[in-house]
Design a protein around this nucleic acid. Sequence first.
RNA 1: GGAGACGUGGCCGAGAGGUCGAAGGCACUCCCCUGCUAAGGGAGCAUACGCGCUAAAACGCGUAUCGAGGGUUCGAAUCCCUCCGUCUCCGCCA
Length: 457
Amino acid sequence: MGESGSGRLAYNLRLWGRPARFLPSQKTSMLDIQLLRSQLDSVAQRLASRGKAIDFTEFTALETERKTLQTRTQELQNQRNTLSKQIGMLKGKGEDASAVMAQVAAIKSELDAAEARLNELLGQFNAILAALPNLPHESVPVGADETGNVELKRWGTPRAFDFPVKDHVDLGEGLGLLDFATAAKISGTRFALMKGQLARLHRALIHFMLDTHTAEHGYTEVYTPYLVNRESLFGTGQLPKFEEDLFKVPRGDADPFYLIPTAEVPVTNIVRDEILAAEALPLKLVCHTPCFRSEAGSAGRDTRGMIRQHQFEKVELVQIVRPEKSWEAHEELTRHAEIILEKLGLPYRRMLLCTGDMGFSSAKTYDLEVWLPAQGTYREISSCSNFEAFQARRMQARFRNEKNKPELVHTLNGSGLAVGRTLVAIGENYQNADGSITIPEVLRPYMGGATAIGPAA
RNA sequence: GGAGACGUGGCCGAGAGGUCGAAGGCACUCCCCUGCUAAGGGAGCAUACGCGCUAAAACGCGUAUCGAGGGUUCGAAUCCCUCCGUCUCCGCCA
């Protein structure tokens, strides 16, 4: 299966073809512009359900001016083009064209002004559109924040401990294998240093997840850049609104790079500006990367331990599918993430995020939350979203359908899983009274057959 | 980093300031012919947006797009500038 997976990618790459081109005047629309124009009311309503108010009067005013101005501009351009052709014909015949040239000159000043104003207007328009989040799917509950999320299922039973449970910090430091002080010396807060068997367990998790998704779930493994450009971040929706969450790498006069906050960015952007062959779909890609987040807005939250770090590892699942398949794919992809938790024997629950708690680009999101005994609660370990055509529209990612017409693909992704948090969950759920950690069965082959991590190990 | 070449539609490839959205070929779709596979003939075949028509399409008209952005010009695929990318040679580092 792993082999057919990589063969599939090579096949797909051949079918990917050459990039489509951006049309500067309308490239940034995120929601279907036609939908906005024709059904502003219902769009505004659905956006309001996720806390995004749309300024009706501003939008309508811009739209009205755009319409008349665009019509007028095109009219003038048409006149200019027609007259210019006449000049060409006259000159070709060696006749005098000065009368016609005077006519064009008369049009010119109005045309220049109209074009300038129209560009300005479209710029404003696009800025508004680019900042609008995706519309929630009808199955998404309306809610203001995480209290509106709905628990859909639970798997596994939290273990009963007959000794005081330690959290992962006490466990890891007790074993001498986890060291935040040194990480802080090297870099600062929100970094971790792991050693020995714990570092190996961390690596084992990555290998286990990748192997499972490639061999059993039909994904093709990819390796991508970790530094990306602005266009890619715009495509998946991190820009323009969430720049402060990202680490930015200046490059003198050149455009800056950004450290990826998730593999979603480089992997999904593989199909940016592409017209895929219908046979290339679905594309199922899995990718392990480090993720870098500034956590600018979460000062003071989860300061202890490795729950919330500036740098963490994640194995990400990405699917590029035909529009009519995306809801099916969403369920499938979420199951793929859940299976990792089940194989690891970690109790979890599946949450359906409400409108107010979903990410910017998502139409529907399931969060998987793993049981953390030390916190006595479930904590997010995976987030699986269907973006429908939202990212595809921003990226101009399309496929050629049966009518031979380019059509936007749907994109999905989900963590499968966040590695650091999985490590935390294993430590806390598999801890023993003596401070050692039992290694889950499925990871032992990756640990040289070891069954536990202990002070002696 | 230095020097040079290049970037045209799904693909290949002409085009060098005027009637070019772009010859020709391949691929694809439809039709005809041919009794199978092969071959031949004809037609069609970029995208987005606007306007008109429409229940919606189809369609018609228009505008923009020849790597991206800017400039010159009545008029730019074609000339100039900047950027991005690809290739070749040299240097440098592995």
